[in-house]
Every structure is written in structure tokens, then in C-alpha cells.
Design a protein around this nucleic acid. Structure first.
Lengths: 296, 296
DNA sequence: CTGAAAGCGCTTACAG
DNA sequence: CTGAAAGCGCTTACAG
């Protein structure tokens, strides 16, 4: 008996809306018209409950305005599509909202994940370059030391004696690694805040600047040009991230690059593994490499 | 009677997994342990069916490697988060997969949307700069002519006489608009393929190049520099899109810019309106503006 | 603190 | 061609 507003049964509505065979064309039209009229849209949840549907991957990255995150997202999107996954995106601040919408989570969840949700059996989570270990989560770790040593050696060979490392106030792993590598080489690097303007940097009379990332490196390049400082003649500049756009600026920015396609691939592999059940080897290591361009 | 593997009822599992009160701590632990053991994760669909949950916006953009799409995505992500929406992303090719995962769709759905799904009462759809009109869909239209005229006037004032427009093989709206504007000014522009290398362009001895977009503009800038051609002295170059990075290249790229934040806002407004029911005014117009930098 | 019942909105057989 | 029944996996009252 139970009738829909169109005066037909639920099954018939299903047939009309899903364009299935075995329905009178007239009936279909009538149902569709009523649906349009009532602004009816079938519920994803009702449908998902009874039809097999694509799994959804939650992707957590910072501001997409930064090509570093955008490039990673592009890779993950592509890999996910290949494997038949949908991708929901969120910034680290909104991870919570995302949990209800995804079957697994990947990305720079960073500090956003504490506390680990009362230990509830949450989704599979793969963290990229995370500040601490969360048991049960997959991890993509960055191996920075080797490439950083390459960069430091390169800088010293070019005559660097007074390097300045620009770092986040909270001291990032990348900053610490540079200090370590300079230290090994017997050079004391000065650390200053990541967004220190050249006007203030100049007082340290540095002959090399390690930017917090490539974007900050571009900023420095621009400021140095504005002040008539020659790069790399007077000051060498190295960035971190390996953005493709670094090839378009002048001078082209030397940088500690990471292969984001490899990061994405490793992350999705771990997701797959975690989806099977608690895995054994939950961490993958991806190395940086030092790319020499024109700014050093 | 119906028992779960943990030996308790479904309700008790719900209480444990959702960290709800009114459950014996021992029971909770036992349930969580079993859940972990069995790699159990609650179904999004079952839950979504009975709990109010965030709506999900489908966002369709091209390769995020292109900052144009990345910047739009960044804006949409932010606006969506403010309004409590989740965002699933897909490239135009994968729109179909996305439809089952979203409550509304926004973006460059372009040609991917034909045929319009057998007229089924699909989700609300808002198309950005779409090649044709789909009845019932919202549209964000770009108004290019005014800014294009500004650009053309500017180029002519700087002495341009032999402009070349680089366009997609399928002739884009942007390309046609430039031809129209040059035509109005009594100048015949030559059209060539968007990725024509400078080696071939040189044979036309152009004194201005209209790149297909900013990224292609960067490419041209680089090629011109490699060939020792002075920009803007010998050849002027204008891009399309208004990417922020255009400010970092040398020379800084003049461009036909669009305010992507405004595009995003208009799109989400239309989604909201369509979600209420069939709206009246389904189109919003966003103008380009010509940004003069150093390459012209 | 724990469980039996009802229902969320769909689709998939199965009758007619 | 159309509809009545069953069930997908959850949560929300309601009993005990």
C-alpha cells in the first residue's frame, strides 16, 4: 500500500530514478516530474547501504595554495582514481569532520590527531612526516639527513662560511637536520625565524640562507633582488620541497626535493595494507635529494 | 538474542565504539579489543542513515598541479568548511564516480557532463565557465571581453602590430575573445596551437604573444630568454588566469586575471540556492581584469 | 549496565 | 509493468 507522492510504490521510483528497464515510459515521466517538483534526491546513505560503492579516502593537506600540497594532492587523486577510491579533502584543522566521511585517512594529520580519539577503533590512518608516532597508524617518514649533508657540502664548497637557517618558531625537523649537518662540518649556523625579512638578515651578514621552504625561498630571492644583492654571488639560497616552479624563478632555486609521487604511492600502499588488517611494517621511508640549480 | 562476535548486543558495540556513557569499562575494553582484532570499522552508510551528518560537495577541477585549479580548490575547501560541508574531489574524467559520493557538484564539469544523465533528477550542479548551457544547472560565467579589450588596447599602445594568439585546437572562448578584440581594433591576429614552440613562432615574427594560460606564458618566457629575445622589448607576452606565481617569474607576467575567491563564493551560493529547490536566476557572472606587470 | 524493537532510505529478489 | 516483503548496518528510544 505505502505510496510515494507520485502515487506509485518505492520500487517504481527506484526504477524511474535509476533509469532501469521494466517500467512504463509514461510512469517514468510522471515519477521524474514529481521528483523534480519536490526537489527529490536519493539518499547516498540508503543507497550505499545496499549497493556496493566506491570507498572514500580522506586526504589531509595544508593550504592548496602551496604547490607542495597541491602536487601531493594531485598525485594522490590520480592514484586513488586508479584504484577506484573517491577522495574527500580537508585541512588539518578539520580532520574531525572528515572522519565520518572517509573509510581511511592519509596526510599531514600532524598535531591534529591528538588525542588519538580515546583509543576507539578508528579508520586506517597513514600519516606523512608526522611529528610523533601514533601506534597503529601507518607512517611515511622523510629521510632528510643524507640530502641535507649533500646540500651542506655543496654550500661549503662554494665558499659558505656564515650560513643562516630560517626555521619555524617550533623548530622543525628540517631545521634541526641542517644544524646537525653544518655542525658535523664544523660550521656554526645561526637560526632565525622563518619569515625574517632581509633587512634583519643582513645584519648577520650571511653568505647562505636556508629557507624554510621553497615558497619562502622565492620570497627571499625577490627581496634580495630588490636590495641589489647578487645570488648566488653574494648570498646563496636553498629552499626545501622541490617545487617544480622553482625552475621558473630567477635565479632557479636550488632545493631539498622530495618525490611526492613516491610519497603518494607509499601512502596508498600502506592504506591498502592497513585495510587488510593490522599490518606488520607500518612505516615507509622516502628520501629527499638535493637538487642543484642556480641559486647556489 | 542476536549476538555480535564480541558476545554482546549491537547496541553495546555502538556504545563502546562511539565512546558513549552507560557502559561498563570492562565491557567496553572487551568490545574494542574484539573490534581491533576483527578490523571492524562502522559503516558510514549505516551511520549516515540514522545520524544527521555533514553534506558533501563534489568539486571537479583539472590537474591540481596547475595553480589555477589548486587556488580555486583552496578557496572552495575553505568556504565549504565554513558552511560545514565536506568536499570530494575528482578530475573531469571521473565525474561519474563522484556523483554517488556527493550531495551537489561544482566545478569544471565541462564536456564530462554530456549526455545530461538521461534527464534523471540528479544532484544540484553548478558549472564554472561551461562550454554550453545545461538546463537546470547553475552556471558561473566569465566575462572576458572587457578585460580583453583592456589588454588589447594596452598591447597596441605599446606598439604591437603582429600579435599571435596561442589557443587550444578546439578554439577556446578566451581565444575567440582575443580575436574579437583585436578585430575591433582593426588588427589581424594569427592563431596557432597553444603549445607551439618559439622556434616555430619566430617564423611569424610576432611582437606580442597571448599565451593559452599563465603556465604556458611561463613556458614562453623561459624559451624567449633561452633564445635571447627581450621581453617586453622585442616581444610582449600576456598570460591568462592571474596566477599569484606570475609575480615571481622574470619578467613578471602580465595577465588576464580572475578572482577565484569570488568564483568560489558565487558557486557555493548557487549550490545553496539550488539545494533549496529549482531557482530562478541560475547564473552568476564574474569578470576578468587585466593585470599589467612587466612582460608587456 | 545491557538488550529487544523499531526505523533511517534505499535496492534486490520475488509475486502477481 | 507494478508492488509487498526482506534486509543492508547503524542508532535511538524504551524495557529490564
Amino acid at each position: 500500500m505505502s505510496r510515494t507522492p507520485a502515487g506509485v510504490s518505492r520500487q517504481t521510483v527506484t526504477r524511474a530514478v535509476n533509469d532501469m528497464p521494466g517500467i512504463n515510459p509514461g510512469t517514468r515521466e510522471r515519477v521524474l516530474a514529481a521528483a523534480r517538483e519536490l526537489n527529490y534526491h536519493p539518499s547516498r546513505f540508503g543507497r550505499g547501504l545496499v549497493k556496493p560503492s566506491a570507498r572514500t579516502l580522506g586526504l589531509v593537506v595544508g593550504d592548496l595554495t602551496n604547490p607542495y600540497y597541491a602536487d601531493l594532492a594531485a598525485t594522490v587523486l590520480r592514484l586513488a582514481a586508479e584504484r577506484g577510491w573517491n577522495v574527500v579533502m580537508a585541512e588539518p584543522g578539520s580532520v574531525a569532520d572528515l572522519v565520518g566521511a572517509a573509510d581511511a585517512v592519509v596526510g599531514f594529520t600532524g598535531l591534529a590527531l591528538e588525542p588519538p580519539g580515546a583509543g576507539a577503533p578508528n579508520l586506517p590512518v597513514v600519516e606523512i612526516d608526522p611529528p610523533r608516532v601514533h601506534p597503529g597508524h601507518g607512517r611515511i617518514e622523510f629521510e632528510r639527513l643524507t640530502a641535507t649533508r649533500d646540500a651542506v657540502r655543496h654550500l661549503l664548497e662554494r665558499g659558505t662560511r656564515r650560513p643562516v637557517v630560517l626555521d619555524a618558531a617550533s623548530r622543525s625537523s628540517r631545521g634541526r637536520t641542517f644544524l646537525e649537518a653544518f655542525g658535523e662540518a664544523g660550521v656554526d649556523a645561526v637560526v632565525v625565524d622563518r619569515d625574517t625579512p632581509w633587512a634583519d638578515l643582513a645584519e648577520l651578514s650571511p653568505d647562505a640562507l636556508v629557507a624554510f621552504n621553497d615558497l619562502e625561498g622565492f620570497r627571499l630571492l625577490r627581496e634580495l633582488r630588490a636590495h641589489g644583492v647578487d645570488v648566488p654571488g653574494d648570498v646563496r639560497v636553498v629552499g626545501v620541497d622541490g617545487l617544480a616552479v622553482g625552475d621558473f624563478v630567477t635565479p632557479r632555486l636550488s632545493t631539498l626535493a622530495i618525490d611526492l609521487a613516491e610519497v603518494g604511492r607509499a601512502a596508498l600502499d600502506l592504506v591498502a595494507e592497513l585495510s587488510e588488517g593490522p599490518g606488520r611494517n607500518l612505516t615507509r621511508v622516502v628520501p629527499h635529494r638535493f637538487v642543484v640549480r642556480d641559486s647556489t
